[in-house]
Design a protein around this nucleic acid. Structure first.
Length: 429
DNA sequence: CTGGGGATGGGGCCC
DNA sequence: CGGGCCCCATCCCCA
């Protein structure tokens, strides 16, 4: 191996000896480093704006953008893939074109790449996030997600107080990703998170779960399930219950068409349109399914159970819960697991919970005497009379459209006076 | 510690 | 497009 000296002469390369390894004083500090990065980025941005040394052209919706391929390479997984295929050694300018998003969206992203400033607003956040997803820019996606989360809270506040500052936030790439994420965990960064009054936040928490991380199908975090804040003091409010759905609708309405243009080609090369979730990689066939899926990202639980204040993402889940837990609809003896009928079983109430026991298990548990009379109407469970039980089952309501019925007529409420969120041995009165 | 069952959440798809 | 059903995965509780 040879080394070429400054004056052009060549000399053989030799391994540096100990004498060569003089201590190097590196005059550096965090400020100096940041300043250098900032200056360098500014220089590159100036070059871009003056179209100096731009070796990459990007055509988006008919509008031409010029940029530096090394900058794009370093910022986007998509461009990394694109530029590493063939164009690496080429002196020809690299070209790329996109129809999946608008020129304005790409301009926003390009400005971020060259400045670290991401100009997000409620009108462009979804499209920017979709484009960032397309371009594989994880940091931009993370900023957009945090912006949406904070916007949801802001919107909720707006609905209540009708006094909201404009939802436009300039995200800056000053913090490292870890710092940023820690900040998001800490109730989002102050610059995007107006201070909400404590009471208000609690109220919102009752309707929104903490937004979970995108996760694959079927996975679930049990702890999150219990994070809701029950509001026992007030009856279920339909308007409040559905407000979460309205927020989902708002978010859904802002979804740009890009979300629905994921073309999947089958054997016949016919494109199958699927709808891509802007939060994760999941795609669905129907837009309505996407709307339903979005709830797992927004954390909305618009369907509260009247009996225990537990909240659900879907009406059918609420119904299933109510029928199983509070109505003892399952014709199975809880103790011996045998199938029973309404005639040969009785419903036992433990707080807001109800379950069935067959006659044999009832006698064994001492809840009824051998002649069929009730022996214990206190702990551990209350035994409903057959008529009472049937009446209760007829009237008990799981739905949210008929909440008054439940409060007045349901068999559940005949028993439940205290509603325990955790279902732990509530004291029946 | 482990396996079974219940409860729950999410996706696909039919009506 | 919403409601509802079915199925499956996962978590938690309990024996």
């Amino acid at each position: 191996m040879e080394m070429v000296c400054e004056n052009g002469t060549r000399r053989p390369y030799r391994t540096p000896s100990e004498a060569d390894r003089q201590p190097v004083h590196r005059w550096t500090s965090a400020d100096m480093s940041a300043n250098h990065h900032s200056c360098l980025l500014k220089q590159l941005d100036q070059q871009r704006r003056q179209e100096l040394f731009c070796d990459c052209t990007v055509l988006v919706g008919g509008r031409l953008f010029r940029a530096h391929r090394n900058v794009l390479f370093g910022s986007s997984g998509y461009f990394r893939m694109l530029l590493s295929q063939g164009a690496r050694d080429s002196l020809e300018p690299a070209r790329a074109s996109f129809d999946a998003f608008t020129p304005d969206t790409f301009a926003t992203i390009l400005d971020f790449v060259y400045s670290g400033h991401l100009a997000l607003g409620s009108s462009n956040v979804i499209e920017v996030m979709s484009a960032a997803s397309y371009l594989q820019m994880d940091n931009v996606i993370a900023y957009c997600k945090a912006f949406i989360e904070s916007s949801l809270e802001i919107s909720a506040k707006d609905a209540i107080e009708d006094a909201l500052p404009p939802q436009s936030v300039l995200w800056e790439q000053d913090d490292s990703k870890e710092e940023y994420e820690a900040e998001v965990e800490n109730e989002h960064s102050p610059q995007c998170q107006p201070v909400l009054e404590a009471g208000l936040k609690e109220e919102q928490a009752a309707h929104y779960e903490a937004v979970p991380e995108p996760r694959r199908r079927g996975t679930r975090k049990r702890s999150a399930t219990h994070r809701y804040t029950p509001d026992d003091s007030s009856p279920i409010d339909l308007q409040r219950a559905t407000s979460g759905t309205q927020k989902a609708d708002e978010l859904y309405a802002t979804l740009p068409t890009i979300v629905g243009v994921v073309g999947v080609f089958n054997k016949d090369s016919a494109p199958t349109v699927r709808f891509k979730c802007p939060f994760c990689t999941h795609t669905v066939k129907r837009k309505a399914d996407l709307k339903r899926h979005l709830r797992c990202h927004t954390g909305e639980r618009p369907y509260p159970c009247q009996a225990c204040s537990k909240r659900f993402t879907r009406l059918e889940h609420l119904r299933s819960h109510f029928e199983t837990i509070h109505q003892a609809r399952k014709l199975v003896c809880r103790k011996c697991k045998r199938h029973v009928t309404e005639q040969n079983s009785r419903v036992v109430c433990e707080g807001s919970r109800r379950y069935r026991l067959c006659e044999a298990c009832l006698q064994e548990s001492g809840l009824v005497a051998r002649d069929g009379t009730d022996t214990n109407t206190e702990e551990p469970g209350l035994l409903l009379g057959v008529e009472e039980e049937l009446e209760g089952n007829r009237n008990a309501s799981w739905g949210i459209e008929d909440e008054d019925d439940l409060a007045e007529d349901s068999g559940t409420d005949l028993i439940i006076q205290e509603v325990e969120d955790s279902d732990e041995e509530p004291s029946a009165k």
